[in-house]
Design a protein around this nucleic acid. Structure first.
Lengths: 226, 226
DNA sequence: GCCGCAGACAATGCATACAATATCGTCTAC
DNA sequence: GTAGACGATATTGTATGCATTGTCTGCGGC
């Protein structure tokens, strides 16, 4: 799995089989190999991946809670699929929320906080590969959330459970560019202590990300067959 | 384990053991019997509930994704716990989002839609017990979401994963009253086609619910020991 | 006295095996 | 010919057992 020498920097816990299986299935969905409504048979997946059905079941349960699958007792798991509206709304919401967070950051962050965020933004720009980029980006987001909101719920509700995942940027070509530009705009606004500017930067970035995701997922067939 | 005669009315799919275990653990947390940081040992729970460790593991994974537990590979599951800020932010967000949804409903709903919502609101008021109330309320929320937003993501992000669950109202004394009053206010605004009114109704209701939840969870000890 | 390491113990992760449930085809009755 | 019931098969749900990993205790070295 490790494509680069030091696998996932500052990543402490190793991934269990269940987590790997979940990642695999997420990829299948994002890449369009699994389309909406398609049924996942536990045994097939288990055999295909060389594990037993237990980790497959555990992955399915996690993906059900994340919204990728619909899992009904004794009736199997089906790909939930996404509609164009889902994506639009999802990113509109993210924009709303992160705009609010950005405002709070501008209002409350100390100079040190700004410096720390700045450093992370710079690190993102230098990231040699997409994985490191994603990891750093996640740290930046966490930092913003930590400064602006309760640590757990906002993060859990709006960062974890959805479309943003480690392999997200692989499937959305312009994702990294958008993200970097948005972060840069946010940092400029933050340094000028402009709450409005920070809010706008976040909303704009997330609107663009939404469009990019929609384009990518439409191309791969994840979206559209409603 | 079933302590009440007619288990959950109009529940089509029977609950698997995993789901029952998850519900059990959620209750333990909400009632304060499990406090933040406390570790859950799979075998103990299994024995206590008379099942094997498999359904317990599956429940733990689901609760991890819902945010109730922190589950790390090979290191066990710990109660995540809530901070007062978590609750405040959670409800502020819900207010933001449902305010937006309420606006959209006012702008797009047909007379028939209004009638249907009205019927559900009336049914809520008539509900003889708290379970039926919760079920009807959920149908109403789903209806609103369906009218106003993409069906899946908004619902998945903001309804499912968190504090609202079937046994929520048992733990929050004034929950039902607040909810009914808020729905009534929303319906009045809707009938007058007042987007602002609907928005305000939702925000107000959710602010109050947040306060009620905070009070209840502080009393039970779920919140506070940070 | 403190740090690091080795072994035993405890708890988790996963595979196998069996039980429960759904699904589909077939047969019978009308 | 069609509807309903019954069984065969496919698939999921759960229990048990072993392998793996984390944790704790006690010893030796610095």
């Amino acid at each position: 799995m490790s494509t680069h020498g030091r696998t996932l920097p500052r990543r402490l816990k190793r991934e269990s089989s269940s987590e790997q299986v979940a990642e695999h299935i997420r990829r299948l969905i994002m890449s369009g190999e699994l389309v909406k409504g398609e049924r996942l048979r536990q045994e097939d997946l288990a055999e295909e991946l060389g594990v037993s059905r237990i980790p497959v079941r555990e992955a399915i349960i996690a993906l059900d809670r994340e919204g990728w699958l619909d899992f009904e007792s004794n009736r199997g798991a089906h790909v939930a699929g996404l509609a164009a509206d889902d994506i639009r709304d999802h990113y509109e919401l993210r924009g709303l929320v992160f705009g609010l967070l950005a405002r709070r950051v501008v209002e409350t962050a100390t100079d040190e906080d700004v410096k720390a965020l700045s450093a992370l933004a710079a690190e993102m720009k230098r990231a040699p590969d997409i994985v490191e980029f994603a990891v750093t980006n996640e740290r930046l987001i966490r930092q913003i959330v930590r400064l602006a909101a309760s640590p757990r719920l906002t993060a859990a509700l709006l960062v974890t459970p959805a479309i943003m995942h480690h392999d997200f940027y692989e499937f959305v070509p312009t994702g990294r560019k958008n993200q970097e530009a948005g972060v840069a705009a946010f940092m400029r606004a933050l340094k000028q202590r402009s709450a409005d500017g920070a809010d706008t930067a976040m909303r704009t970035m997330l609107r663009r990300q939404g469009q990019a995701v929609l384009a990518a997922f439409t191309a791969s067939g994840v979206v559209g067959r409603e």
